[in-house]
Amino acid sequence: MKALFPYLLVAPAVIYLLGITLYPGIFAITQSFYAVKFGPWRPIGFQNYANLFHDYQFWGALWNTFVIGSLSLALQCVIALALAFFAYRDPWVRGWRIIFLIPMLFMPSAVAFIYKLFFLDARVISDLLIRIGLIESNLAIQSSVWLSRSLLILADVWQWTPFLFIIFVAALQGQDEEIEEAARLDGASWFAIFWNVSLPLMKPVIAVALILRGIDITTMFANVFIVTKGGPAFGTETISYFIYRTGFKFFNFGYASAASVIMLILTIVIAQLVVKRAFVSSRS
């Protein structure tokens, strides 16, 4: 009984999570071997997977998720590091933090509407750019794949750079000031200290922060759903939107489940290879 006690304490949470991950996992795997449209399920073996393999929209969605996600993550990381570098020694660091935090506290669906209105419906940005003479007519964002992708990236950078900024500032503030002080007495510039001393020490924190942010970027949905609808020409369709569209717009549930299973396998591989290492090393 004494030996079982810790298991009993952790069991309710684990059972709850198994119910909401293991059951759906098994369900999705089963369903992926059936043709599930309207009416009864019809077993079709690996047909869904074979079709996915030849589906350029599926590969496109994977590619879009990767391109949009990695560009957005890289931008956020560089900007957040720069801002943290300038802010962490500043006497008003708390004030900067509160201001920078604000975009992160809006609902993603609200942010999507802000950007939809700003760029597409009211065309405020086009108007401002015309006024200062940078462009001559309204930006045709909806007909350009790269402008549409840039819009999604911009909205994501605007909303989520503070996530990394807050973590980086905390990490920099937590570092031993004596090391910095010693380097400064040796005549090193602030930037040299940051680059050669602070940044290497921050590596584990940066890894954890980028992993968490990276996970959330790959699940980007509200912006796509509200701003671009995956267009033009499926150029901004992320994998989440692909699964949603296949399942809940075309009711092709078996096919969508096959895509989910592939995503699930990718997630587990990445979790084992990357996340485990980062989270374990960050606490040693």
Partner: peptide, 18 residues
């Protein structure tokens, strides 16, 4: 780690079964 890893599950993956 199992509990932690559920944080990585994309909503879209489990959306249909749920």
């Amino acid at each position: 780690f199992y509990i932690l890893s559920t944080r990585m599950m994309a909503p879209a993956i489990v959306a249909i079964p749920i």
